[in-house]
């Protein structure tokens, strides 16, 4: 199971969860200095970090996806590598790069993935949909198993979290992520331009936001110690309780999302009996529960409640639901309607 490997870090120590919660709040505040008006996205990102899950950000051009991920990377600490997705990027480019040295002899050096070794905390893949499927499949292994085979041996990255972003404006020269790759992301978070006029004014006129590098550089570094996060995540998963009623609730949500018509869900202009082709994988469900536990912990509770499930459901599940081709083109609106209807229909508790 993939998450066994996620948990394969230091032996479980007693983590001081209340202190870590304060630290998580500090992390949110600090990231919030760089990216304003995105409190919910920052909260989701924090949940993903403490669930040890990978995140795919999606949004228009220039809404701060890259800034957000860079800010988060700085506040998490640890080694940070990034790569830009391009159409000619090949898997090898992630592993090594070759060049002629000053002495005229060819050299082979480790690429961005291997360079930091085990300390790699965040790997940031920019514009992931511009890379070819070959690259996606390497990424698949990196995300699922947190390891890569290269130079005849296996490299392991126990603290690795992959952040990726993707703009949804263009479709030319892009490769849609395969379902298997999308399923390995814990969350797919959509970022929109802030609607609040005051935030918009600040983004446009506040000089602080003009220079991205200085903005990121001004943030406190390494608030979350990247090499402790695995232990904390494990502690959270064992400390936060999920009751029988919550388990039943999550299972009925699952049942309803796979078979919306049977659950009595109706969406305008959609035949719900023929809407969902596949999806909502068991891995997705386990991610959902993990994220819900972290959300409960961040809210200062010792038990997960339906609100926590609802808070993370769209981001953890929507990208795992695959619609029939007739509806796939309208996926964003339909997925939102489906999940809204889901929470309006499935009884709690």
């Amino acid at each position: 199971m993939p998450h066994d490997k996620i948990d394969a870090g230091d032996p479980a120590g007693r983590s001081d969860l209340p202190a870590w919660r304060t630290r998580a709040q500090r992390f949110e505040t600090e990231v919030g200095k760089a990216v304003i008006g995105q409190e919910r996205v920052i909260r989701l990102l924090t949940i993903a970090l403490f669930s040890r899950g990978h995140v795919l950000l999606e949004g228009d051009v220039g809404v701060g996806k890259t800034t957000l991920l860079r800010a988060a990377a700085r506040c998490v600490g640890g080694a940070y590598e990034r790569i830009e997705g391009t159409i000619d990027l090949m898997p090898g480019d992630l592993i090594y790069h070759t060049y002629l040295a000053d002495d005229g002899r060819p050299r082979v050096e480790e690429g961005p993935v291997l360079r930091a070794g085990e300390n790699l905390a965040i790997f940031f893949f920019n514009e992931i949909n511009r890379a070819r499927p070959q690259v996606h499949s390497l990424l698949l292994r990196l995300m699922a198993e947190r390891s890569v085979s290269a130079f005849n041996r296996e490299f392991r990255f126990p603290h690795l979290v992959v952040f990726a972003d993707r703009n949804r404006v263009e479709r030319e020269e892009t490769f849609e992520l395969p379902a298997a790759a999308r399923d390995r992301f814990l969350m797919e978070i959509a970022i929109n331009t802030p609607a609040d006029p005051e935030t918009r004014r600040a983004l446009a006129f506040d000089t602080r936001f003009h220079d991205g590098d200085r903005l990121i550089g001004s943030l406190e570094e390494g608030i979350l110690e990247y090499d402790k996060l695995n232990d904390v995540a494990r502690a959270i998963q064992s400390e936060i309780k999920t009751s029988d009623a919550l388990e039943r609730y999550v299972l009925s949500l699952w049942q309803a999302v796979r078979n919306p018509a049977e659950a009595g869900i109706e969406i305008d202009g959609v035949d719900t009996a023929r809407l969902v082709a596949a999806g909502a994988s068991p891995r997705g469900l386990s991610y959902l529960v993990r994220a819900a536990r972290v959300a409960a912990w961040l809210d200062g509770r010792t038990m997960a409640v339906p609100e926590d499930v609802r808070a993370v459901f769209f981001e953890t599940m929507a990208h795992r639901i695959f619609f029939e081709p007739a509806y796939e083109m309208r996926r964003e609106t339909i997925a939102r309607q489906l999940i809204d209807a889901l929470f309006e229909t499935v009884p709690v508790p």
């Binding site: 609100e307 499935v346 009884p347 709690v348 508790p349």
Partner: peptide, 19 residues
């Protein structure tokens, strides 16, 4: 408790959580 939850659901027109 469940009976009252269902009543809140019906009155609200959707499932009502504490939030």
């Amino acid at each position: 408790l469940l009976a009252l939850h269902r009543a809140f659901d019906t009155a609200a027109g959707h499932r009502l959580l504490a939030a």
